[in-house]
Computed example of a mutant assay.
Amino acid sequence: MTLHALQSRLARRGIQVAIGTLSNRQTGHNRPERPESLRAVAALEELFTLAPGALTTLLGPRRPRGRLPAGGLEHLRFDAVPGGPALAKIISEICPEIPNDVKVLHTEEEVVLAPGRVLREIRTRFLAQAGMDGVDRCFAVNLADRAHDLDTVQVKAIQNCRPGRVRGDYSRWLVATELLLDQVFNTGETFLVEYTAVIDQPIDEDEYFRAFGRSVGLYVLRVQFTPSELPVRCYQFQTTHAGQPRTEQEVHLSNARFVLTATQNPKRGVAGIRREWE
């Protein structure tokens, strides 16, 4: 029986399981543990005319969840960021079982602007620590400018990962990419991931921000301008909710024509840089 046929038969029983999830469980890449996942395993026992419990007993006890020295992790939430429900939905499509037990220790981003106020690319590097065994993936989501062609936005791996599933939400200008790690990490292990989102399109918006589903250790943002098109002012901003008033602080261009900001332990919400042109 193919995985698509298996998915269809489960759907007839009111159980929705993504093909990617079935494939990962078939290969042992991950295992069902949640109540709805165990319900699907019980349905498989019926499909294959096995005795009740024949498959579920093979799973063994639930895997222990590791604890990090910082005292555990916040649950990943998107209610404080722009388009939260749409964001959560598109992430669930590329990562049906979101790896909540991962603590981001440090994030660096570089936004590169080309002549004509073209957003060339956004380079991202982050250091994280696994809070459970079996961490093998993460995700990247880009909120594009409304004038952008989402079909041309590409996420390219640079270090320790490779692109997996990609989904686009054209009504919300979201592009989500699954990042498959080069190896599996267990509790307490740290790993570095680097990738770039190639946009290469003009932008209408005068700001760039990163949205946080939970607090992180340190966030560093650098915006690189082209010498022929420099802003007259730049402002660093941060807010706990995208719809709330935010505080701004002016930041100055360096001699190398970039602005650099660092935010220590930003909470859920957004942090970024706004620019004013002549």
Score class of each variant (00 low, 15 high):
residue 244 Q to T: 10
residue 171 S to G: 08
residue 174 L to M: 07
residue 53 G to Q: 12
residue 170 Y to I: 10
residue 215 S to D: 14
residue 131 G to I: 03
residue 68 L to T: 15
residue 164 G to F: 08
residue 43 A to R: 03
residue 114 A to K: 07
residue 37 S to A: 09
residue 148 H to D: 12
residue 49 T to P: 06
residue 272 G to Y: 03
residue 173 W to L: 11
residue 85 P to E: 01
residue 126 F to Y: 13
residue 263 T to K: 14
residue 124 T to Y: 00
residue 49 T to Q: 15
residue 20 G to P: 13
residue 168 G to D: 12
residue 36 E to P: 02
residue 225 F to T: 00
residue 212 F to Q: 01
residue 58 L to H: 09
residue 150 L to F: 06
residue 258 F to G: 03
residue 226 T to D: 15
residue 201 Q to E: 04
residue 48 F to H: 09
residue 109 E to R: 10
residue 267 K to L: 06
residue 44 L to I: 02
residue 12 R to E: 14
residue 120 R to A: 09
residue 146 R to N: 10
residue 176 A to G: 12
residue 91 I to C: 02
residue 222 R to N: 11
residue 39 R to Q: 13
residue 218 L to I: 15
residue 225 F to R: 00
residue 262 A to T: 14
residue 118 V to H: 00
residue 19 I to G: 04
residue 36 E to N: 12
residue 168 G to N: 13
residue 152 T to N: 07
residue 192 L to E: 13
residue 191 F to Q: 08
residue 156 K to W: 03
residue 96 P to E: 01
residue 267 K to Y: 03
residue 227 P to E: 12
residue 213 G to H: 03
residue 262 A to R: 12
residue 28 G to W: 06
residue 88 A to I: 02
residue 63 R to E: 13
residue 260 L to A: 11
residue 28 G to K: 10
residue 190 T to H: 05
residue 159 Q to K: 14
residue 203 I to P: 00
residue 264 Q to K: 12
residue 275 R to S: 05
residue 145 D to L: 03
residue 131 G to V: 07
residue 76 L to S: 11
residue 25 R to F: 12
residue 94 I to D: 00
residue 50 L to E: 10
residue 22 L to D: 00
residue 205 E to K: 15
residue 155 V to W: 01
residue 235 Y to Q: 10
residue 269 G to S: 08
residue 43 A to E: 15
residue 165 R to K: 13
residue 242 A to L: 04
residue 237 F to D: 04
residue 133 D to M: 07
residue 147 A to H: 09
residue 67 R to V: 14
residue 188 G to E: 03
residue 248 E to S: 07
residue 84 G to S: 05
residue 179 L to Q: 00
residue 231 P to D: 08
residue 26 Q to V: 06
residue 31 R to D: 00
residue 200 D to E: 15
residue 96 P to L: 00
residue 71 G to E: 09
residue 36 E to W: 06
residue 81 V to S: 02
residue 242 A to I: 06
residue 97 E to I: 06
residue 143 L to K: 02
residue 183 Q to P: 02
residue 146 R to S: 11
residue 247 T to F: 04
residue 213 G to D: 13
residue 255 N to P: 01
residue 254 S to I: 00
residue 77 R to I: 04
residue 258 F to C: 12
residue 276 E to V: 06
residue 32 P to A: 00
residue 118 V to P: 01
residue 58 L to I: 03
residue 41 V to H: 08
residue 171 S to N: 13
residue 5 A to E: 14
residue 22 L to H: 04
residue 147 A to E: 14
residue 146 R to C: 07
residue 147 A to G: 13
residue 77 R to D: 14
residue 98 I to N: 04
residue 277 W to T: 04
residue 4 H to K: 10
residue 221 L to Q: 09
residue 17 V to T: 06
residue 20 G to T: 09
residue 252 H to G: 01
residue 70 A to I: 14
residue 180 L to H: 11
residue 274 R to F: 04
residue 100 N to V: 08
residue 34 R to G: 04
residue 85 P to R: 05
